[in-house]
Design a protein around this nucleic acid. Structure first.
Length: 305
DNA sequence: CGCCAGGCTAGCG
DNA sequence: CGCTAGCATGGC
């Protein structure tokens, strides 16, 4: 196969955009940096590195599996892909979100304002559901860079290969291909105790349980629904709702947000996940609380206070 | 060496 | 229900 090339003017993006912050902020583990420096410097942003991923067919977006490479220059996103990358980039990186309107809808809060200002242009991602689900099952008690390494290892070991202009890319393994692995095989990739979770969840999806079905439900019901998958509790479920299924109100209560609640929003700690979730979602503005959460996560993890 | 990392499951009271 | 022990692995 060969690459088509093109450019998406930033003038066609609804509001500011920062590719590096979006892709290296621990939301998606499905992109890789061509220069091998993924996560080397989360305090620096706005770089012009190439990022690569393999996208499965997506209804209404692309009919075929597509290799996509993209980098951000001053006034445009330059891309190389095995098809038209524009609708794919709009979909994966939520380029049609009206980011200025989202900023305007954010409640006044000193910490939040520092986070939004530092990483202006960072968007929530829209990962394909199955790879997102597996990524965050792997995320339990794991560092961001290693979660990314696991997804790259899964693709390299079990993904289908695509040859493009002499280079080999590996797609993220399909539910069928992952369901066919043994727990021992997945442990050899370094997944640890997450290995049986990944295998069994892949089996469930291969058997017809589609994480996308949660999209039809109201937010809290959707969160409960995804916990049917093995290795998915409230927190992982919130990540999939936010980073794949478009529930922008979802606020994953991870260790960073829990400590942010303790330090900055102590009245939001209501003891249980469900009640604390309600309180912090209200505090972070409701409809777009997931955007606020993701800015806080990235800002605090990079050392901000 | 010990501690920790975008938590979850199973089994208990 | 709520609570917690146990769980793999690598990096510092």
């Amino acid at each position: 196969m060969a690459f088509e090339t093109g450019a998406l003017p930033l003038a066609d993006v609804d509001g500011p955009f920062d590719l590096q912050a979006t892709v290296e902020s621990g939301q998606s583990y499905l992109w890789d940096r061509a220069d091998g420096r993924m996560y080397d410097s989360i305090d620096v942003h706005g770089g012009d590195a190439w990022y690569e991923t393999v996208v499965p067919p997506i209804d209404g977006v692309c009919d075929e599996r597509t290799v996509v490479r993209v980098r951000q220059l001053d006034d445009r996103l330059e891309w190389e892909a095995t098809g038209d990358a524009v609708p794919i980039l709009r979909h994966l990186l939520r380029l049609d979100d009206d980011l200025d309107a989202i900023y305007d809808a954010t409640p006044e809060d000193p910490l939040l304002e520092r986070a939004y200002e530092t990483y202006e242009g960072m968007r929530i991602v829209r990962d394909p559901p199955f790879p997102c689900l597996i990524s965050f099952i792997c995320s339990a008690q794991m560092r961001v860079s290693r979660i990314h390494g696991m997804q790259m290892a899964l693709a390299e070991a079990y993904g289908e290969e695509i040859e493009v202009e002499g280079r080999t890319f590996e797609a993220f393994p399909s539910p069928d291909r992952l369901a066919g692995r043994t727990e021992a095989e997945l442990r050899e990739l370094g997944l640890g105790y997450r290995a049986p979770y990944v295998q069994r969840t892949a089996e469930m999806v291969a058997g017809g349980e589609d994480p996308l079905d949660a999209t039809e439900l109201e937010y809290e019901a959707a969160r409960d629904r995804l916990t049917r998958f093995v290795g998915v509790g409230d927190k992982v479920s919130d990540c999939v709702l936010l980073f794949s299924l478009g529930f922008l109100e979802a606020v994953p209560l991870d260790t960073w947000i829990q400590s942010a609640i303790a330090d900055h929003y102590p009245d939001c700690d209501r003891g249980t996940y469900a009640e604390t979730s309600r309180a912090i979602r209200r505090r972070l503005g409701g409809e777009y609380a997931g955007y606020a959460q993701t800015y806080l996560f990235h800002y605090l993890r990079a050392g901000g206070e």
